[in-house]
Design a binder for these strands. Sequence first.
DNA 1: CATCCTGCCATAACAGCGCTATGCATGCTT
DNA 2: AAGCATGCATAGCGCTGTTATGGCAGGATG
Lengths: 218, 218
Amino acid sequence: MTSRPADSPGHEPPIRARLIEAAARLLAEQGPGALTTRRLAAEVGTSTMVVYTHFGGKQQLLTAVAREGFTRLAAHLAEVAPTDDPVIDLGNLALAYRANALANPHLYAVMFSALTGGREPSANAEIPEARRSFDAIVAATRRAIESGRFRPADPTLVATQLWSALHGFVMLELAGRFVPSMHADPEHVFTTLLVTMALGLAEDPTSITRPSGPEGSG
Amino acid sequence: MTSRPADSPGHEPPIRARLIEAAARLLAEQGPGALTTRRLAAEVGTSTMVVYTHFGGKQQLLTAVAREGFTRLAAHLAEVAPTDDPVIDLGNLALAYRANALANPHLYAVMFSALTGGREPSANAEIPEARRSFDAIVAATRRAIESGRFRPADPTLVATQLWSALHGFVMLELAGRFVPSMHADPEHVFTTLLVTMALGLAEDPTSITRPSGPEGSG
DNA sequence: CATCCTGCCATAACAGCGCTATGCATGCTT
DNA sequence: AAGCATGCATAGCGCTGTTATGGCAGGATG
């Protein structure tokens, strides 16, 4: 069973994919504390050695899981159907981004946890799959700029700003920092944050549609 | 040496404070991997039992360290001298926030890591010290709104938006996700993000000063 | 003053963790 | 058919967080 794609029948995925899938499932269902090499080996019916022969260690396995997470995120973002309004498209991308994070919070945490281990300066910074997700935001931003809805600017720079705001909100929400006694409900914060960003980037602020509420940012 | 505040001379801080300080130092100097109960006990010259008699476990100790981190953050934010321009004050608060995070990245990560452990729904959401830092942003936001520089809105809601953007940028920067080949330099992203937020919240966009560059968001 | 009692800490141990060395079995190559 | 390379199971190492146990000090009580 070296490099053959099948074990018993003919439709069994390779061990690497099964490990990543089982790791993502353990992460999603029981949290990061349950993602151990022993439990993972038991899940796929092998020993802990497979983690080291196929990935080199637990950290590299987590990197592979993060790549899988970015692939799923890019797939979800790709499902957002473009409209004729690029600003609406950006809003829909933001909604899909948040929905994907809420659906798999632990996976999202792994995707963006870099300095948790310790020493490496930019260990998991080179995740090529992350670029596909980011490119979706850049493309929508470029359309918003080129159509004249957003002021002239570098689309990548604007997309990075949007990504920062998006990521910050999602992280705070996942961390449970939006306590009802202290903050507004997350849904409202998210909507108004998107409106604020759109207003700050718009060429003509009056073109930004205020969703439902009588006030834009309050 | 039960509850007496001194051991040998008369100016020794209590064990709890020494543990928190040593934990914060280990975290800052050698990363989270070095923060073990044994190393911590060796650092303060006792055994691992003190962690359990005084905190109940490592998780509660980390919560205490996070509280200390928020206290330091609030102290740094309190050092920001108010000017006659509340928008400038918000920018200075943002600069101080980022500087504090960059000066102690691992401590910042502990302050905002909630779902790292596993199961508790809102475990460390009740950190009263965090409110003091947040209140500084709320107060400056309220001044910006009441002075007419920002549009009328709920100051807490606006401050939560600013906090999200701030936190998101800082997290991405600390995680090393701003790779030079893919994004602009972090300094520039941060500045333009602040301008974008200010423009989106301003009553009169022309009142927002663009720092140095010929373009506001690009 | 003697005694008890309460709280704190050092020691030792336990289960579990990531990881590695070793040996065996398998499939490909020659 | 013999040799070789590869991948996995086993067993073990050092380390982790945590707990049970025992001793020792200081304050309360007679």
